[in-house]
Design a protein around this nucleic acid. Structure first.
Length: 288
DNA sequence: GGCTTTGTTTTATA
DNA sequence: GTATAAAACAAAGC
């Protein structure tokens, strides 16, 4: 689902299209998704877009920021002069905006709009003072991440740090990878695919992973995420970029969602099990 | 209409 | 108190 590469894809889009715009108004259609005082962002200009793991922060010119988490099905779609004639994904977005999943609308200057759509309404948008973003529990407790965003102050996940995080832990490796307080940004898709690529069983205990294997796993995390940047993220559920376009990673996923299919590495058969309550895809033949 | 889905938060346990 | 595991929660499509 939307994990680091998807959120980064959105961040890059916002950086390109949203920065410089002034927010003229906010229409909140579903109140529970929007916390804080909307008045505090009216009249302010968008200055920078930061990402913390799977979270986004839009910094404004007046010392306030918008902290956003899209969870499973959130979309941020920009419409303005530059996107005139650009078609959005009919399947993921529909024919027109706003639509029935549009819960917050930001009216911008130059007759542009930013729509927040969220089919399952799990996400959130919070107005918060820029200086206090780091105090929000979700951001404060986040671990190092592989591709820290400029200005976020997030610690970069290096091989040395990764070995330290994995080393000696009693937990099972896959849930550990997905624990945002340990490593920021990895969710179910990339945890499955990184373990697959590194040839490590998701059921392994972290303490049983050798230094060499940890290195392979670290490199695999970087590799699958870079691959996803290339394909514009994974659009298995509702993910689209700010232009409303889908990503293509799901078509190139290694293990995720491939139950019963032939393993591309060893020819084995991909199985699905549950680990830590989450669907887990792996090849029992080569992932030991 | 019960089941499934995931990221995060909360509660329980060792 | 700390580390880990499990359960709860959000809402909607099938």
């Amino acid at each position: 689902m939307p994990e680091l590469p998807e959120v980064e894809t959105i961040r890059r889009g916002l950086e390109r299209y949203l920065v410089g715009h002034k927010i003229q108004g906010v229409e909140v259609r579903v109140a529970k998704l929007f916390e804080g005082d909307a008045k505090n962002i009216i009249g302010a200009k968008v200055v920078t877009i930061r990402r913390f793991g799977k979270g986004l922060v839009i910094d404004l010119s007046n010392k306030y920021s918008l902290a956003i988490h899209i969870k499973l099905t959130g979309q941020l779609i920009y419409r303005g002069a530059e996107t005139k004639g650009v078609k959005v994904s009919r399947e993921k977005v529909g024919d027109e905006l706003p639509n029935k999943s549009t819960h917050v609308i930001f009216k911008l200057d130059k007759d542009a709009y930013l729509y927040y759509n969220d089919r399952r309404r799990f996400g959130w948008i919070r107005v918060v003072e820029t200086s206090k973003v780091g105090e929000m529990p979700f951001f404060k407790s986040m671990g190092p991440e592989p591709f820290p965003s400029a200005g976020s102050g997030q610690v970069k996940l290096t091989l040395e740090l990764f070995k330290k995080i994995v080393g000696g832990k009693k937990t099972v490796i896959k849930p550990l990878l997905m624990d945002q307080t340990r490593i920021g940004g990895i969710g179910n898709i990339y945890a499955n695919d990184a373990l697959f690529l590194a040839g490590i069983s998701p059921k392994r205990s972290a303490k049983q992973i050798s230094k060499e294997e940890a290195k392979n796993l670290f490199n695999a995390i970087i590799e699958v995420m870079e691959k996803s940047f290339k394909y514009g993220g994974a659009s298995e559920l509702s993910f689209v970029n700010v232009l409303g376009h889908e990503g293509e990673y799901q078509e190139h996923a290694l293990a995720y969602g491939r139950k019963g299919e032939k393993c591309s590495i060893c020819g084995g058969k991909i199985e699905k099990i549950f680990l830590g309550g989450r669907g887990t895809f792996f090849c029992p033949k080569h992932q030991k």
